[in-house]
Amino acid sequence: MKEFFTIGEISKLFDINKKTLRYYDEIGLFKPSFVNKDNNYRYYTLDQFQYLETIKYLKELGLSLEKIKYNLNNVNLEEVINSLEEQSNIIDEKISELQFIKKKINNKIIQIKESTRDDLLDIIREVNFDERQAIRLKNSIKTDYDIEFCLRKLIQMSGGKIFLTYGLVGVSISKDDLISGNFDEYKSIFVIIEEEKYDKSLMKIFPKGTYVCIRFKGIHKDAPPYYEKLVNYIRKQGYEILDESLEMELTDPSLSLTDEEVIMELQILVKKS
């Protein structure tokens, strides 16, 4: 039976990089049985195999090398159980986070697919929406530069928790400006959120109700004629404007689309007579 094993042989037997084995030696986690002083070659023995297998097992469970070293140097079943229970809780938290992210991704897929429907372009629709919550920054916005600057400011104010890849980004024209026909200045910027928690001072609730909507290909500067169409429609129907507008880019801005591919939607909450 073979008595000694080189670092290369151990690397192949356990599928562990030689550089990793050297690092384990350096930090005192897994040292060779002896080192040849003439050539500094590391040699391991058969009775070390189970020890290394245990390190691999605990590492695959997600324990840090520091915690693995502590557990192996203080062989105590109670300590091992505590470490594994702690790691199990961490994994549960990660699973919840990933499930939440997956939900957002699926919502984004549905949103992008639905936004590309040509039959919904340039027509006025009345759509019933449930209550939606957003994180919002009130600020005068007149240019694309203002939009980008305010969006970065909003992200900063939120503690960097907003993920623009998943949330709908929009700007708003005030109720008074909608009524008076002033469509060239936005009064706030927002990001639709789902279940996240933010400072209440940043929150905006878009109420449940009927929204008069229109969808078009273009960017923010192309929006004024569509606002005019919506407001004229609202007046003809005898409806009352109840809140600020929602002007949202339905296609994901992170995809770096050309202006011709961008789909915008305007929504105005109304009260029917």
Rank of each mutant, 00 (worst) to 15 (best):
K153A: 02
L65K: 03
E66H: 05
I95Y: 04
K31W: 03
V80D: 04
E66F: 03
M157A: 07
R132F: 07
E126L: 11
T20P: 10
R117L: 11
T54H: 09
K18P: 13
K31N: 07
Y51W: 08
K102H: 13
L84A: 02
L98A: 06
E85A: 05
L52R: 00
Q156G: 03
E148K: 11
K67Y: 05
Q133T: 12
L52H: 03
R117G: 04
L121D: 07
I101E: 12
I55W: 04
E148A: 13
N40I: 04
G159Y: 11
Q50I: 03
E53W: 02
V75H: 07
L154P: 13
I135H: 13
K138F: 13
L151T: 12
D146I: 07
I91D: 00
F34M: 03
L65N: 04
D119N: 15
L121M: 15
I110H: 15
K153W: 01
K103L: 10
I90C: 02
M157R: 14
L61C: 09
S115G: 07
K153G: 01
K142D: 09
D15P: 05
Y51C: 01
R152N: 14
L65P: 14
Q111N: 14
Y43K: 00
K69P: 09
D38A: 04
I135M: 08
S83Y: 06
I81R: 13
S140G: 03
L137Q: 13
N76A: 00
N39Q: 10
K102V: 00
N36K: 14
D146A: 00
L137C: 04
